[in-house]
Nucleic acid binder design. Structure first.
Lengths: 200, 200, 200, 200
DNA sequence: TATGAATGAGACTTCATTCAT
DNA sequence: CATGAATGAAGTCTCATTCAT
């Protein structure tokens, strides 16, 4: 059985899932109404226009759907972590771990966000979240004195790339766990306070 | 007169430059032969098909052209640096600095790579370069024991995002320099050996 | 509550009134079942198809509805006039006066008749009425020796144009009265006997 | 050989003529790119989009084309007339006479103007021309004291209706001449000064 | 080389109508 | 009666590509 979030139901949800599948497999550029209709088992593209105001509307619904799925997976794990560093690590590891369960959705989401143009509240939100997280952590003394915005940008996009690569060719669960730990280590190192062990 | 690399000449080069301009300004999705022809001052798209085997061929030529331009700027700066860490820093700083001189080309390149699908020799090459650089640096003891491939992937894409953001809204030269230094610092921290930092 | 003629009732009448409103506001070409359903507060176009055999059927019902409304207004005024000339004048003045009370319906009617194609019993009827009126008036010596058909055609359509113009931007009642009088004067002049003004 | 005005040439003109034919025969509403392409012997509607910026552009070109044709016929006849009354008569008669040579174009033009929405410079121009003609004629004492605007509106649209009717079922040339004379008589009567018929 | 014309496919959207519930 | 879904056709428009000149 497919996962289904509470915001969608019936044909509308079916179309959204078909769109996600097409975007994940064929890419954003090839995700035409024709392909999506075929994937959804619909006889015409008119049905999509019937359920959605336009292509943007459908794509937004896809993003919303995926974010609900990913949020349901990641949020508890992030909330379970205590402290700024642990939460950073939890976010990274949860995101990579997610590849094991929702590779298709993640591939679609990343492609959607890449080609979002302007309408990317989601990415902007995450970026702002990271930036704010860094700032409060810096105030608490658990992060170094780096530029919060630049760092947030570099680390979130780097995370996306690792996730995308993993999603394109899903590895074993153990390897996935290792990748998440590696990346989290990297980010923890990158954001650690200067203090003692600073070489060079 | 615009810089002209040795691989392109005459109309072909003119079309490539027009394509780069269109991609940078209107985005990959809107970069049709029509727009490119108009930008190039051509009265028909036929000339583009005459000079290029197809759209892919033209886009590849764009990537090649941009890489030569960026390479000419970055390579000397990288070569001037001595040691693995310094070269990593030089690469990052040069890439950010490049925004000041070739924002258009960088915007186009990033859009091109985003929508590359599979055929991204350039990105794969840079990724392999970073990975190899990390491995030899690790052997030399100047980098930590991280996973070279994952780290290369995260850091190169993070760098791209920072460059793209800067290119989309080019800041003052001084600010550009600061951003490069910040990012380089971040990456050096992220890749540094754990405890007794061994210099080189 | 809106006026309701005896031929229509319930949902059917509601749809007809919605259609009239849409045609008047958005124009014949934009009067799709979707728009009409929305205007009628219906959630689906299915109800329209249920109540009407097809689009033509609905449009005919609109014409009928409007004609009853306009007839109820104009007929008493025409009947009150005595003599061919006075009746001509009464028709013209009543029609223009009608703009003050049923501009929406008149705008819709004119648009409907314009795009009638062939099935315009209403217009044909009025044309025949005028023609016959002119003929009997000529026999009575109160009209000149003009061609009744050509004159009827030119005057009825000219009247429509004046009404349409007034309905599109409804003027003050006094101005409306003046326009009606002006136009009636014009038509009386145009149809008067040549030399010795024939009384009646 | 078909008439061809100097503003159009080649395929563009061919498409315009096809569009005019389709509008005249099938009506404005049915004049889709598909029908026009078929009429023009084109294999696809893309060709129309290639030559015209959009449907509006094509329709405007049709109007322009027809106006050149009609203008070439009518203008000399109007210019040959001396005096306001004679020119009014010349305009009416020339317009009706035109049915004998360009019925198709006239039917198309009338349908185009009817569905013009806003972009009807042509009709507005003619209306203004009539209105101004009436005003100057009134100042010269050859027209009565009627409202120039209302009269212009009623007479021009009445003329259109007579022309459209004739064009839909073209009568013999002699009958055409008679219709023109009848209508001109009507209009001259309608606009004549009240009492002492002052000629010119 | 260069042009302009032509093609055929495919894009998104809207429409009137039908039908099961 | 009423709804919402579904259909299939047709609409305008853009695209990459080809070809004769």
């Amino acid at each position: 059985m497919r996962a289904r979030t509470f915001t969608e139901s019936g044909r509308r949800a079916q179309i959204v899932r078909a769109a996600i599948a097409v975007i994940a497999e064929a890419g954003y550029a090839k995700a035409s109404f024709s392909r999506i209709a075929k994937q959804a088992g619909l006889s015409s593209t008119g049905m999509i226009s019937y359920h959605f105001a336009g292509k943007d509307d459908l794509l937004k619904a896809c993003v919303t759907e995926i974010e609900e799925i990913t949020g349901a997976f990641m949020q508890p794990r992030i909330d379970a972590a205590v402290g700024h560093v642990a939460q950073l690590r939890a976010f990274v590891e949860a995101n990579v771990e997610l590849v094991g369960e929702h590779a298709t959705e993640l591939r679609a989401l990343i492609d959607l966000v890449k080609n979002a143009g302007s309408r990317s509240d989601a990415v902007d939100g995450r970026l702002a979240l990271f930036e704010e997280h860094f700032r409060t952590g810096q105030a608490a003394g658990v992060f170094g004195a780096f530029d919060a915005r630049i760092t947030a940008l570099a680390l979130t996009t780097g995370l996306d790339a690792v996730v995308a690569t993993a999603a394109a060719n899903v590895p074993e669960p153990a390897e996935l766990t290792r990748i998440g730990r590696e990346l989290a280590d990297l980010y923890v190192r990158a954001t650690a306070p200067e203090s003692t062990g600073g070489p060079e």
